[in-house]
């Protein structure tokens, strides 16, 4: 049986879809162990067991959050050394790519990022599907040396009961000197949005230059997101206008999203934005310029003014409820 190690982000409330998706993906490949940096509730552990996890490695060095991503990487290295997994799976994020990079060097292993699928081929080799250049190209790759280290954009297949008996093993990691030399002082946390997470949302409302001003952003973009239970994404132009925070950027320098529906409002469709959303299942676009590339990349393109059309659409949607 193959051994797959998954890094899960501890949580007080509920696992992210990504964590659950990773454990489900791993359980289709082999025996699943989960690396946890801190304690979670028994209910949450039980949920991992239902997805097929059979071991939890629980870090007991409470300084793990004081030394940044390096400390988490050192914890994973300790587990790789003692348990020799065939693959290590992390959710794709800026922090996890950093962790994966350090783990790859220290374990002398290849790393692949932005994986969308992972499976064993006939020769028992782990093969990854990787979206590159913002999804314009899909490549099939593999790691040829060492442990297969991947960061994954997992989809959540839902629970298929694979209930395992779960053992919890406590692990104390001594961090490297260069890890201990870095200290993290955590700043205050702001309230998180009640909207779904941009990279996990089924519907994303994309806001572009054509939205124009704060009033339209509130009435059209936020209004439509609320009416459809959607997340909000934005182009660089909208962030430069300071209509929303920069972590909502979709595109080459920002997030890559693949929702069921991408609703583009006033987005002309420059290639570096298309790179972040073109794997959406459906695209609807509204733009005043009939030549906007986004309209011609959409299943339904509306030539018209966002500020005129969207408030009326929100009214139609709210009347249906």
């Amino acid at each position: 049986m193959r051994n797959i190690l998954v890094l899960a982000e501890p949580t007080e409330l509920a696992w992210s879809k990504a964590t659950l998706g990773l454990v489900s993906l791993a359980s289709g490949l082999g025996d699943v162990s989960v690396a946890l940096c801190s304690v979670v509730s028994d209910e949450l552990l039980e949920e991992l067991a239902q997805r097929g996890a059979s071991a939890i490695y629980l870090n007991t060095n409470e300084k793990i959050y004081n030394h940044g991503n390096s400390a988490k990487a050192d914890f994973l290295i300790e587990l790789i050394t003692s348990h020799e997994p065939d693959a290590v799976l992390l959710e794709t994020s800026v922090d996890n790519k950093e962790i994966a990079g350090r783990v790859a060097v220290l374990s002398n292993s290849g790393v692949l990022t932005d994986i969308s699928a992972l499976e064993f081929d006939q020769s028992e080799k782990l093969i990854a599907r990787q979206e590159i250049f913002g999804g314009f190209s899909t490549v099939i790759s593999s790691v040829s040396t060492g442990v297969t280290i991947v960061t994954v954009h997992p989809s959540d297949p839902g629970v298929e009961s694979k209930q395992k008996d779960l053992k919890v093993v406590e692990v104390f990691t001594n961090f490297a000197d260069s890890t201990k030399a870095l200290t993290v002082k955590m700043g205050p946390r702001t309230e998180t949005s009640s909207r779904p997470k941009l990279t996990e949302a089924k519907i994303v409302i994309g806001a572009g230059r054509g939205v124009g001003n704060q009033e339209n952003f509130k009435n059209s973009v936020e209004g439509l997101a609320d009416a459809l239970g959607a997340a909000i994404g934005a182009t660089q132009a909208v962030i430069d206008l300071q209509l929303c925070p920069s972590d909502l950027l979709v595109g080459q320098s920002g997030a890559t999203v693949s929702p069921d529906l991408y609703f583009a409002l006033g987005i002309s469709g420059a290639i570096h934005h298309l790179a972040g959303m073109q794997s959406a299942r459906c695209v609807v676009a509204i733009d005043i310029d009939e030549n906007a590339p986004m309209l011609h990349n959409a299943d339904l393109g509306i030539v018209g003014d966002v500020g005129e059309i969207v408030p009326k659409l929100i009214e139609v949607l709210n009347n249906r409820k």
Binding site: V139, T145, L295, V303
Partner: peptide
């Protein structure tokens, strides 16, 4: 090199769907 690329597939460009003007917008969207 610790990784190997075996093959690549280019994503076909999204094909254009229906284009509607402002007059038919609401019913087309709904």
């Amino acid at each position: 090199s610790f990784t190997k690329v075996h093959s690549q597939t280019l994503r076909p460009p999204r094909s254009a769907g229906r284009i509607v003007d402002e007059a038919g917008a609401l019913s087309a969207l709904e």
